[in-house]
Amino acid sequence: MTPHPAATRIDITALSLAYGRAPLFDRLDLSVAPGEVLCLLGPSGAGKSTLLRAMAGLVRPEGGSVVAGGAVALMTQDDALLPWARVVENVVLGARLRGERPDVPRAEALLHAVGVNDLAKRPDALSGGMRKRVALAWLLYEDRPIALLDEPFAALDAITRRSVQALTLQSLIGCTVVLVTHDPFEALAMGTRIVVLAGVPARIALDERLPPAPLGTLRDPADPDLRPAYLRILAALEAP
């Protein structure tokens, strides 16, 4: 894929939000720069997914603002593939929903590019790794400058996860990416920046920029140079 010309930023200013009656955010500030791959970590319930959904415009802030500069695409752990539609139809769903003419050849090309060759299958007939690849092809077809990923690789085995992670980074070069994950190693491998949310209401316990890796490639999370960052992530995750 060619780099996205209009990769855009996300600005969260003084965001206040409650989940039911529990305060989740109280005047939280966070900006994501164009082209960043920001990995969002935090203990369960810290509000990672809610923050991501706020960026997508699915959750309305009670105070402050969330401004995404461009259109967003959201990919979640249960990847929202239509179980009744064949793979290609899943990729062009956005076009159908917008009343556009679906570009089937482009969808097929994208599917081949991410390694899906069984275009006539339904999602349930695919392995977890293949489903992710289909979801990725969908993401690329949507061609949004901002990609929000909510633990997309959590259910994959280690080997499949690594290959799908690499493919995702490669495919999303030029996009602004926010990735919610539980896995510090995933963050170290993929991110250009790592943010840890902790506490109630959540504050930013760590905001770490990682040394640059070649564009679109995974880092080796076992690299000794990354160990200090890993320890800081752990410390931030354990912070009260």
Partner: peptide, 29 residues
């Protein structure tokens, strides 16, 4: 909910978007 939200992000708003969401997502589901 995952399908409904994904459709909402893709379809946008308006009556046409709602009808197409009904046709391509809600109805088959």
């Amino acid at each position: 909910p995952a399908l409904a939200e994904a459709a909402r992000l893709m379809a946008g708003s308006g009556f046409g978007a709602r009808l197409r969401t009904l046709r391509f997502v809600v109805l088959p589901a």
